[in-house]
Simulated scan of single mutants.
Amino acid sequence: MKFRQVTEENSLYDNLEQQPVRDLLRDINREDHRVADAVERCLPQVERFIGQALPRLQTGGRLFYIGAGTSGRLGVLGASEIPPTFGMPEDTVIGIIAGGEKALRHAVEQAEDHPEEGWKDVLAYRPTEKDCLIGISASGTTPYVLGAIAGARKHGLLTAGICSNPDSPLSEAADISIEIVVGPEFITGSSRMKSGTGQKMILNMISTVLMIKLGKIQGNSMVNMRLSNRKLMERGIRILQDKAGLTHDEARLLLQEYKNVSAVLERIKEMKQSPSKNKVS
């Protein structure tokens, strides 16, 4: 069945090379405003995916993102942010891009045309029925992604598809369809723009809510972040000052010892529950 390829429709704007910079910026910004509205319309599907993915991750499952080009890069970016932000193991959220690491910096356009390679790349991680896979494709037609989704469903993984065209092959193939229909791109066919922005917003929502529900956030604080530089150490100190009433020096010394805000808070909690211990050690 033929579907509407919104991502390939003509831009609402023309003669761009003749427009003043101010007008170009204004019009790009106007189009970007449409993205948040498109994402809002997807929230029920995003909620459905999170509801089914969470029990899997709670029992040791993993989350895979897979895509090609811009979509693949956004997936790899989203996955790479999870360990430092939430203190999760490197293999909890995994980003896979057609063409491998080379494609992160250089276009490997032909890599997306081979459906068998998508599932093959997932197989390298020995997936199980506890795992989830999100296929990301603005057009919803990328063979590499469709192949990965088909293989994942066949082997019992939970699957979702993020795309920008309604009723696309990806929507048909995945268990859960997340369609961010943002309209024609500012530059015709340039799905790195509105489609890419929408994809990033959806991926942020999914990973953030999952990490909150997995207990990696306390209040509104990243208590499990890796204290890998001075800025993050100072952030950890501020969290302990706020949540535990510690001085700057007390917080710093405890973080140097326990390496983690959450671990310090847990130690303080244990201390309060044991009156005989009057100091953190």
Rank of each mutant, 00 (worst) to 15 (best):
K2A: 15
Q5W: 03
V6G: 04
E9S: 06
E9K: 06
E9I: 05
E9R: 06
N10V: 08
N15V: 03
E17I: 05
E17D: 15
P20S: 09
V21W: 04
L24W: 04
L24K: 04
D32Q: 09
D32F: 05
H33V: 05
A36G: 04
D37I: 10
D37H: 11
V39W: 05
V39N: 05
E40R: 15
P44A: 06
P44G: 03
F49Y: 12
G51Y: 07
G51R: 13
Q52H: 14
R56C: 05
L57V: 04
Q58E: 09
Q58Y: 03
T59D: 12
G61K: 07
G61N: 10
R62C: 00
Y65E: 02
G69I: 01
G69S: 06
S71I: 14
G72C: 05
G72R: 09
L74C: 04
G78T: 06
G78S: 13
A79F: 03
A79P: 00
S80Y: 01
P83A: 00
P83C: 04
P84Y: 00
M88L: 13
M88T: 11
T92R: 15
V93W: 08
G95F: 09
G95K: 07
G95I: 08
R105W: 14
H106W: 10
A107P: 01
A107Q: 03
E109M: 03
A111S: 14
E112Y: 09
E112H: 10
H114Y: 15
E116R: 07
K120N: 12
D121M: 13
V122D: 11
P127F: 09
T128I: 08
T128G: 14
E129I: 03
D131L: 03
A138W: 07
G140E: 10
T141C: 09
G147M: 12
A150R: 13
H155Q: 10
T159P: 09
C163I: 01
S164L: 09
D167S: 15
P169M: 07
P169H: 00
D175G: 11
I176Q: 09
I178H: 00
I178A: 11
E179K: 07
I180L: 11
V182R: 02
P184K: 10
F186R: 12
F186W: 13
S190H: 09
S190M: 08
G196S: 05
L203G: 00
S207R: 02
L214W: 03
N220T: 12
S221T: 04
S221D: 15
N224T: 01
R230A: 11
M233S: 00
R235N: 11
I237V: 15
R238V: 03
I239Q: 12
L240Q: 01
D242V: 01
D242E: 10
L246K: 02
L246Q: 06
H248F: 13
H248S: 02
A251Y: 04
L254F: 15
Q256M: 11
Y258L: 10
Y258F: 15
N260H: 05
N260L: 04
I268V: 08
I268E: 08
K269A: 15
M271T: 04
P275T: 00
P275R: 06
V280H: 12
